[in-house]
Amino acid sequence: MTDTDFLQADEQALAQRFIDNGFVTTPADDRAGLDRIQRRAAELAADYLKLPHSNDPYAMLDSIHTRVSVDDLNGLRLHVFNGLNAEAWFRPTYFRLARSTIETIVGNELCMQRRVNLSIQMPGDDSSLLATHSDVWSGDSPFEVVVWVPLVDVHHTKAMYLLPPSLNGEMQDKMADLRSAEELYKTIKPHATFIEIPYGHVMLFNQTLMHGNRVNEEPGTRWSMNCRFKSIMSPYADKRFGEFFEPILLRPATRVGMQYKLPGGFHG
């Protein structure tokens, strides 16, 4: 690093990877916090299934498909989703998993999605698929990023796929000629990359890029969480401040600026 650079060398490298690849994966900043989330998710799942709490939460989650049917999956998912989001420590812990990466990529005056999402994809199950999409098409602002955290090892079809930035624009230009998201997936399929993430790591990705999932053909169940972050003052789209996002790091200078009123009452 030279004395003319504002960013540290590691920040520059991380930023460049994000720009070039559309995502970065890093070890969780708070491994103990991640383990706590995994353990709580496994406890909630056990409670729903009326099972004793397991001493091996990883195995409990990875093998959940041996204990729950596809028809009952959404009930399980909602129980765990609601249980996690009801914990006062959950969202701050989730943020801490990737704080340093978020601050480098997005900034340090942040808002966070009000509830962290949970996805469960059992092997062979096609009921929980997400068609090829970019989140901005559904009303997310292009200024948002997604922090995606697996609670088990994920790879190949147990993970999600993402289209590289170098191809996203070209594929997007073809969309108006395609009828459905399935046709879109067939168009991008040769270029989409399933992202391998071992448990203990987190991913931050550019949600303007096309992404989605396919039927899980691996032996274990995928459990993953996702949550959006953005700079408080960057532009919002259909996901608005208050109803979808809430501030987590509103800095004193911004508070002062928002509340300040110039002296008035002048009459010329």
Partner: peptide
């Protein structure tokens, strides 16, 4: 459904 005007891709799905 997509936010882009005129897109009904999700309806088709």
């Amino acid at each position: 459904e997509h936010i882009m005007p005129g897109s009904y891709m999700v309806l088709e799905d």
